[in-house]
Amino acid sequence: MVFNLPVLLTWLRIAFIPLLVFLFYLDKPWAALAAATVFGVAGLTDWADGYLARLWQQESRFGAFLDPVADKLIVAVALILVVEREGAMWMTLAAMIIIGREIVISALREWMAEVGARGKVAVAFIGKLKTAIQIIALIFLLYNQDLWGMPLREWGLWALAVATVLTVLSMVQYLKGAFSAAV
């Protein structure tokens, strides 16, 4: 197994998951800010691990495997926490779409690797945009309150709606690319 700073950052994202859950349920006035901060730091490590791996030429097959697993795990957990608290049908549907898309794209990437066309489902700009908006939405929704008069919760709800639309659009883009290459 490869062990370097980029891989360590990816493992850190996975280790943050129980901390995120603990802070989310902790009944302290600072807990929501702490949970949102942990998730935000995890979002930064998502960017940093890939950037550093490329910069220092420490890309590895193991890191390429673990990075999307860590991303999907922490996002799925954050979505489930927010859905559990909100109890709104549209948020449940949004979470189902986002998590479902991740499962579909992961399976699609595996299939495309088997047929030698993995590049047809490489990360595209729309996927990166979706991820960025999704992380912002979840930070705001985990915090779940106003900050200096800014309605972060409401902004989080809107951002989650936008992320859900981008989720569907990016999935369609990946599926089109994959099926045109496979046929």
Rank of each mutant, 00 (worst) to 15 (best):
M1N: 08
N4I: 12
N4W: 11
N4Q: 13
R13Q: 12
V21S: 00
L23M: 14
F24G: 01
K28N: 06
P29Q: 03
W30G: 02
A31K: 05
A36M: 12
A36H: 03
T37P: 04
V38L: 07
G40E: 04
V41F: 15
V41H: 15
L44R: 08
A53K: 01
A53M: 10
W56G: 03
W56Y: 15
Q57R: 09
Q58H: 14
E59I: 13
S60G: 10
V69I: 14
A70L: 02
K72L: 10
L73F: 10
V75Y: 03
V75P: 09
L79H: 09
I80L: 07
L81Q: 09
V83D: 03
E84Y: 01
R85P: 05
G87T: 12
G87K: 02
M89F: 10
W90H: 01
T92I: 03
A95C: 06
I98R: 02
I98L: 01
R101N: 13
A107G: 15
A107D: 11
R109S: 08
W111I: 08
E114K: 08
G116Y: 06
R118M: 04
R118H: 12
G119A: 07
K120A: 13
V121E: 03
V123N: 09
F125A: 14
F125E: 11
I126T: 08
K128S: 12
L141F: 02
L141H: 03
L147Q: 08
M150F: 07
P151Y: 00
L152G: 09
G156E: 04
A161R: 00
T164H: 06
T164G: 00
T164C: 03
V165L: 03
T167L: 00
T167F: 00
V168P: 11
S170F: 07
Q173S: 01
Q173R: 04
F179I: 07
